[in-house]
């Protein structure tokens, strides 16, 4: 169905981060938001993306925000970096979705919701770390990976899954020796993302643990957050609920706390 060489070809085709984005991220990392905004303005698509993103209802701004400097100012350092990473990921997303019932707008909505809820979780856990805050944006990369690799094999996948409850990531792992999370890690590496982000991508699969207790706990929150979002009606309809396996035991110790936070 899918071979390891197909995966390798897919990874090799991932474009490096454009210079404008690298420059923008470098300024954000240096705490220079004005310079970062100035660099970002060089890319009209990024500007448009930021405008659409920040004016989504989940951010709750009363009046529309247009200027990039203003947007970065509102978002702050961490969320500005997240937004740029989100844009970077959106460059990889397909123009039309076949495997999943998603659209460009719906995928952006998912990115925005995940980012916002991740912020709430980190605030609840009293964690302030730019890298950790950015980690959430690479989790939807796994959706793009599945879309790209499986769209030509939908019938095979449906047939197989009518006989066995098996998720796409496990199919990939068994057939080609790599899970979607590992491929997402490869993408993060191509874009020179930090070790923390790559570790959290791995932990969000719900299949691994880490010696660093904080990262371990964050992996659990991230895994549960993914499944909270994938349990929303619109994403169930899009086929996201069962494309990766949920591990309830992994999140058992934080599930009550998560529920309190989300449903408060």
């Amino acid at each position: 169905m899918i071979t390891s060489s197909e995966i390798q070809t897919f990874i090799e085709k991932i474009p490096p981060a454009p210079e404008v984005l690298k420059e923008t991220i470098a300024y954000i990392d240096a705490g220079e938001l004005i310079k970062a905004a100035h660099a970002a303005k060089e890319d009209p698509a990024l500007t448009h993306y930021l405008q659409v993103l920040v004016n989504k209802p989940i951010y709750g701004f009363k009046s529309e925000v247009h200027d990039v400097s203003q947007i970065f100012g509102i978002l702050g350092l961490s969320r500005s970096k997240q937004a740029v990473y989100n844009y970077l990921l959106s460059l990889l997303s397909p123009s039309s979705w076949e495997m999943f019932g998603l659209s460009e707008a719906l995928f952006h909505e998912l990115q925005a919701t995940l980012s916002k809820r991740w912020q709430d979780i980190l605030h609840h856990l009293k964690i302030e770390d730019k890298e950790i805050e950015s980690a959430v944006i690479m989790t939807p990369a796994s959706i793009i990976v599945c879309e790209a690799l499986f769209k030509a094999h939908q019938d095979d996948v449906n047939l197989l899954r009518s006989y066995k409850d098996i998720d796409l990531s496990s199919i990939l792992l068994k057939l080609a020796g790599k899970s979607v999370f590992e491929i997402s890690q490869d993408i993060a590496q191509t874009w020179n993302m930090s070790e923390t982000i790559m570790t959290l991508i791995k932990l969000s699969s719900g299949l691994h643990s880490h010696e660093d207790e904080t990262l371990n706990t964050l992996g659990k929150w991230l895994h549960l957050l993914l499944f909270y979002e994938f349990s929303q009606g619109v994403y169930i309809e899009a086929g996201l609920n069962d494309f990766i396996a949920f591990n309830p035991e992994y999140v058992e110790e934080i599930s009550d706390e998560f529920m309190e936070l989300i449903y408060k």
Partner: peptide, 25 residues
């Protein structure tokens, strides 16, 4: 969502959260 069938047993395998709003989907 389709049931997985084995040995005359059909099983649905939902994941995550089941409430009145999302489950119909």
């Amino acid at each position: 969502m389709r049931a997985v069938v084995k040995d005359g047993l059909g099983i649905f395998n939902p994941q995550g959260f089941l409430d009145g709003t999302n489950t119909p989907t």
